[in-house]
């Protein structure tokens, strides 16, 4: 074994036994590369993820909702800033990350490629999309890369407000008129497919390179099971239905469900979702339009 391979093996054993590393530590090239890819996609998702909600700030039904939604959008952009910073420290400049996002080389989560049709979608996004996301993010609190794990503490703390805000929006509508209840049901129907795809294909965690390096601390299917266990009962208790007749909790506590549409997931995250290009165009426009602000700050 070469000296480098031995060192890499030692590193692998260290992180697999729960060890954490800092930006100033020696990192294997493969680890650094996987870490940047993962963190970059997370940052991109926070940045792109505000666009579906932003559209509704001006259309929010009350001032209180408008303010809460604005606060959530500010949080998410703040998350993007924090996470990009961590990726920059690993060696990828922010300009390059923006360029890769706009060119489609880097990805963002599937759920942010879809339209936000009604206020019902806004509630369902904040409640269920954020719930699915917090499950992944909580698992990052134990990430082997400590600077990432540390900022996740703040992020998870803010996410818990997002979920409650979403649940409150949904509850207000579910205790309202039949039309309002219908809006929520339609939103659940629209979002269920993307939500079930969100945590990715059920690859065994031992075969997942992100788990191997302990960037993630759980497998995709574990995350999805946790989502189903936590949230399906909450959906059902409101009298809402889930558009999957195979969905149910087995006697062994394991949820069964219809196979998510993996082809759709792949096509959506590679930029072929219903709103992918429109949202990237929006980002492109604003990055260009506000370039003078960034330039003058650097010159300050």
């Amino acid at each position: 074994m070469s000296a480098n391979a031995a060192r890499e093996q030692e590193f692998l054993e260290y992180v697999q036994s729960g060890g954490q590393v800092e930006s100033t530590d020696w990192l294997p090239a493969d680890y650094r590369q996987k870490l940047i890819k993962f963190i970059e996609m997370h940052a991109n998702s926070e940045l792109m993820g505000v666009l579906p909600e932003r559209e509704w700030i001006l259309k929010a039904p009350t001032l209180q909702r408008k303010l809460a939604l604005t606060a959530k959008v500010q949080d998410e952009v703040g998350h993007a800033q924090l996470i990009y910073r961590v990726a920059e420290d690993l060696g990828k400049p922010r300009d390059e990350m923006f360029a890769d996002l706009l060119s489609g080389k880097a990805k963002f989560h599937n759920v942010f490629h879809y339209p936000t049709k009604t206020w019902g979608d806004v509630g369902v996004i904040a409640w269920l999309v954020d719930a699915a996301a917090i499950i992944s993010q909580k698992a990052l609190l134990k990430c082997s890369y400590a600077p990432y794990a540390r900022i996740m503490k703040k992020i998870c703390w803010e996410e818990s407000f997002h979920i409650l805000h979403g649940r409150d929006v949904v509850l207000a509508m579910m205790t309202g008129t039949p039309e309002q209840q219908e809006l929520v049901q339609e939103a659940v129907n629209r979002w269920w497919g993307p939500l079930m795809q969100f945590h990715g294909n059920p690859i065994a965690r031992e075969e997942d390179p992100m788990y191997l390096w302990r960037i993630k601390s759980q497998g995709n299917e574990e995350a999805r099971q946790q989502f189903l266990e936590g949230y399906v009962p909450q959906i059902w208790e409101l009298g809402l239905t889930v558009p999957d007749s195979n969905l149910g909790r087995g006697d062994d506590g394991v949820w069964v469900y219809s196979e998510p549409d993996w082809a759709e997931l792949k096509s959506v995250v590679t930029g072929h979702g219903p709103r992918s290009q429109e949202r990237l165009d929006f980002r492109r426009r604003f990055l260009e339009q506000e370039k003078w602000v960034r330039d003058s700050l650097v010159a300050a």
Binding site: G78, Q81, L82, R85, V86, E88, D89, P147, R150, I151, K154, L297, V298, A299, A300
Partner: peptide
């Protein structure tokens, strides 16, 4: 330690850290 921010000087760092 809670994270890091990039800013052109201490005054901007102050403003952004308060916000973040």
């Amino acid at each position: 330690h809670a994270g890091s921010i990039e800013a052109p000087d201490a005054a901007f760092a102050d403003a952004w850290a308060r916000e973040q």
